[in-house]
Design a protein around this nucleic acid. Sequence first.
RNA 1: CGGGGCGUGGCCUAGUUGGCUAAGGCGCAUGGUUUGGGACCAUGAGAUCCUGGGUUCGAGUCCCAGCGCCCCGACCA
Length: 417
Amino acid sequence: MRQSKNFTKATKEIPKDETSFNAQTLIRAGFIDKLAAGVYTYLPYGLRVLTKISQIVREEMDKIGGQELLMPALNPKENWEKTDRWGTFDALFKIGNSSDSKEYTLAPTHEEIVTPLAQKHVFSYKDLPIYPYHIQTKFRNEKRAKAGLIRGREFLMKDLYSFHVDEDDLNNFYLNAQKAYFKIFERCGLLDMTYLTYASGGSFSKYSHEFQTVAEAGEDTIYICEDCSIAVNSEIIEDQKGGCPNCDNKKLKQEKAVEVGNIFKLMTKFSSAFGLEFTDEEGKKNPVIMGCYGIGPSRIMGTVVEVHHDDRGIIWPAELSPFKVHLIEVKSDNKEVREEAEKIYEELVNKDIEVLYDDRELSAGAKFAESDLIGCTFRVVVSEKTIKKNGYEFKRRDSEKSEILSKEELVDKILIA
RNA sequence: CGGGGCGUGGCCUAGUUGGCUAAGGCGCAUGGUUUGGGACCAUGAGAUCCUGGGUUCGAGUCCCAGCGCCCCGACCA
């Protein structure tokens, strides 16, 4: 992509209506635009990142048997009355339709939709287990949206629901889902600071689990057991008398964290509400056992920015970088420079490498500053200097060192990464 | 939803005890000089001062109400 063709512009000014680093920086760099509190447009760069995160999530869900579908955001009131959540889920956006007086909600989660859906197709133990999921925009009328992408009113969420014949089968899948989640955080560059965190299980089971990423911007406080590499949240810490639920470690480390995912054993709460049953091998009817597994691509995007940055801007992990390479030509009005840059741009594009090519007639300083702000994993510079040296300057965003490489070396280096 | 703060060209800000034509920077346009870390000069365009009431000879400035945004808290299935 040619930067001269991108219609959004980076800015030096910090937007005054945002205080979180992720929102300030993503807005300045042209990834997102704010429409209202907790409601953002994903601009071309931002959508690329969001799509990459979603794709990672999709791949890891598919690997554990997930089946992707897409359920509606617009939900009829009746489904939510069946579970009694129409009146009790107070972050529900409600929509009245004056022409026929029918009421809807914009879905904040999808148990109310997926359970009756399963009911149309699950009759026998032979039909189980199933793992439908979707990646979809969720709506929650948060009393207070905050921290940019970390707590929005409209946000992207992957929610998978598992349906089982018994608790053992649920427990098995539950562990698979945990592993898949860690794979996702690894690919998003969050593995080192993300902890499986014991949370209250509500009425369904002893614990649910959150995935908490340590970050100053986080709104939760977690207590980490460094022996087991797990954590507990503030609901649990008191029950545990300050100790680890997994070992006899009494000294847990307190940190602020962002909840980037959570998994929950729903047991029969929703299957009972809708009467979702299956017939077992003996011909007896039993309620289906359920679990749910949430993870927020948009929230991950904000969290990654909080965790991976320096004072010049974002440092995207390789798999999330909006473009693998930021190609910069210094002195666009130098014919030789322009031709050389165009040549390598085409070369890289032909190798299916995603390149953002800064072909604008701006000063070198402006281009470098904006490049660091945007934060692509690799930077390649073409200038009078590099032409004299018969190569291309290559630099990682997370390193201060640069090197001059030949075309072949450059392509190799980028393709290997 | 309780408490606090803020609202001025596209963006960031200044604007004194109410006073005359609302100021500066960024960005934008035109011309010229520049080009390895957010260049410079000149000229120019661009404002319902959040909205609605009120006080006053006179309101960006004071009062009331509303809306919006941010922060703290509560909430987070």
